[in-house]
Design a protein around this nucleic acid. Structure first.
Lengths: 233, 233
DNA sequence: ACTTTATCTTGACACCGTCAACATAGCCTT
DNA sequence: AAGGCTATGTTGACGGTGTCAAGATAAAGT
């Protein structure tokens, strides 16, 4: 009865292919661990992958748990065994984004062969460029969807805060190198410089009074502005 | 049959108060023009008022057409006779926000009795202060909800663009007064300075690595930064 | 072998935006 | 004044959403 029941519930409308599917499963199980038996095998990552795909292709707004479940070939409520709710799933995606960005930032910052000034300029461009190139991911990472009401998961904070903190570290370095004014508190200055990049990114992403064809000019202008401010009178 | 039908559909469960309601209507009609007859009288503004209230109290996310309709004492689909869709209603609210902000900005900018420097500093504080004091309205005005996919109404653009343009006008003025570096293109500089304010505002509103207790310090830091940049070497 | 536990399933509920079809009432024309 | 036009209201219905509850299944531990 049990075997019949499985076929009934999952493939009642397609008995022919079920045998084939089973065979494929055996192979793909060994290779990619993507099972199609009653228990999925690695639904969590399957959901995250599907979400990342949908996110970049159709935007954060059209991300529904039900669609993701369908993508993963699983019933609507299955995701709830891996994520507390939708917000938790979004947080998990954003966490990966922060992790990636943190690496990128570090890589740029630690290029010993380039002058601090060049690295600073590159960082500005890369930041805005990343946002413009991955608008939906940026929106998710730095948008209210996740952060409002302190809805962020503990896991997310664990990844995001070091990322924020790094901004302060870099700011201090640039202050020491004379690229940024050292008559300002490092934390405030970090908030303001980051705010500038964040603001430009958001204006670009949301299409408010800024066009992607002007990214380079805007970044240059911002970098000039900051570095000019450090040239004492 | 018609009178009976009205009572049936609208107050079938409360025949007792219907007479009282009618009496009240006669009065309130003369005074506040808020009718409760079959035709509401001024549903459009009633909806906008209800929306503004809900917006500030419960946030943009919990704004549903159905709730607004209920607030206005009207059926779910009635709003569709006044707004094409939900987005149009949100645009209308945002339009009022832009109109208000534009006035505020002008008022600050045109204070002849204060020095340009003082006005600049005040503008920075007022901008961020407005955002922090009206987070939901700010989110609506400058958030992706309205602007993404070029979904903004023509009416909205008509109000918002002059508001954006004013930012450039002010920037030029401050450049002329030597408060902002004049070796930068006014449009770019306006985008960057505005971006800074926008970014700070968003970080504050979304609660990302910035706390409302530091608003003043952050504004001062930003203003210092910009004005320092104009002091040539 | 038995039980526990993790995982997945269907069913159900309360929302939501929106369309279609119909009802009402105020206004305009004749 | 009578009759129709149009603006504005109404209910009904559809497909979509997140989420809970209760039951089915399989794997893992005893």
């Amino acid at each position: 009865m049990s075997a019949v029941n499985v076929t009934d519930t999952r493939e009642a409308d397609d008995v022919v292919t079920s045998a084939t599917d089973a065979a494929v499963n055996t192979i793909s199980n060994a290779v990619s661990s993507a099972a199609q038996s009653y228990h999925h095998g690695d639904l969590r990552t399957a959901l995250l992958n599907a979400a990342a795909k949908r996110l970049s292709e159709h935007g954060v707004d059209s991300l529904s748990l039900r669609k993701l479940a369908e993508d993963a070939g699983v019933s609507r409520t299955a995701p709830y065994h891996h994520f507390k709710d939708k917000s938790a799933l979004l947080s998990a995606i954003a966490a990966k984004g922060f992790s990636d960005w943190h690496s990128t930032a570090k890589r740029i910052f630690e290029q010993e062969d380039k002058t601090p000034s060049a690295r600073f300029r590159e960082f500005v461009c890369e930041y805005v460029g990343y946002a413009a190139a991955n608008p939906e991911m940026y929106e998710l990472m730095f948008g209210r969807t996740i952060w409002q009401n302190n809805a962020a998961t503990g896991d997310l904070k664990d990844v995001a805060f070091p990322c924020f903190q790094f901004q302060v570290t870099m700011t201090k370095f640039w202050q020491n190198k004379g690229l940024l004014p050292d008559n300002q508190d490092a934390l405030r200055l970090a908030q303001v410089t980051w705010g500038t990049l964040h603001g430009i990114a958001r204006l670009l992403i949301d299409g408010i009074y800024a066009d992607s064809s002007h990214i380079q000019e805007m970044c240059d202008c911002a970098a000039d502005l900051f570095m000019q401010a450090s040239n004492k009178v």
